[in-house]
Simulated scan of single mutants.
Amino acid sequence: MNDLPDELLLQRWQQDDKPAGKELYRRYFPVVRRYFYNKAGSDECDDLVGATFLRCHQGLQTFRGEASFKTFILKVARNVFADHCRRRAHHRKHLAGVTPSSDEVSARDLAKSPFSIVADGQQARLLLEGLRTLPLEIQELLELFYWEELSGSEIASVLEIPEGTVRSRLKSARRQLTERLEQLAGSPEELASTLSDLDGWARKIRAGMNRTPE
Rank of each mutant, 00 (worst) to 15 (best):
L136Q: 06
E189G: 13
L8P: 06
F63N: 07
L181R: 15
W13V: 05
L60E: 10
A89W: 02
T52S: 01
F36A: 01
G200N: 08
H84F: 01
S101K: 13
Y146E: 10
K112C: 15
G41T: 01
V118D: 11
L198V: 06
L54V: 14
L170A: 02
D199Q: 09
A119Q: 06
P162L: 10
F145C: 11
F36E: 03
S157H: 06
T178E: 11
L142I: 01
H90Y: 02
L8A: 09
R167F: 06
E7L: 07
I117S: 15
S101R: 11
S102Q: 05
G208Y: 11
V49I: 01
F115Y: 14
D47P: 00
E189S: 13
Y37N: 07
R125V: 09
G41V: 02
F115I: 14
R12I: 12
V80M: 03
P135D: 02
G152Y: 15
G164W: 14
P30W: 05
K171I: 07
E23L: 02
Y146K: 04
S196L: 09
I205T: 03
S196F: 05
C45M: 05
D103S: 00
E44K: 00
E190R: 03
F145Q: 09
L141E: 11
T178G: 12
V118P: 14
R26Y: 00
C85L: 14
A77G: 01
W201M: 13
M1K: 02
Q61L: 10
L195C: 07
A202E: 07
T194R: 10
E149T: 15
H84P: 01
N2E: 06
K22I: 12
E7T: 04
S68M: 11
L24A: 02
E140M: 03
D197V: 08
F115Q: 08
R86A: 00
A20R: 07
R12P: 04
Y28A: 08
A107H: 04
V166C: 13
V80D: 03
H91G: 07
A40P: 00
T194C: 13
V166K: 12
R203E: 10
V80R: 02
L4I: 04
E154I: 12
D16A: 10
T178K: 15
C85T: 07
S153A: 08
E140P: 05
T71Q: 04
R78V: 12
E44D: 00
A173Q: 05
L10C: 04
L9N: 15
R64N: 12
Q14T: 03
L24P: 02
L184Y: 01
H57V: 13
L195S: 13
D199A: 02
P5Y: 07
K204M: 05
I155L: 04
Q139F: 08
E66G: 14
K70Q: 13
A77W: 01
G21W: 03
T194D: 13
P114M: 08
C56R: 06
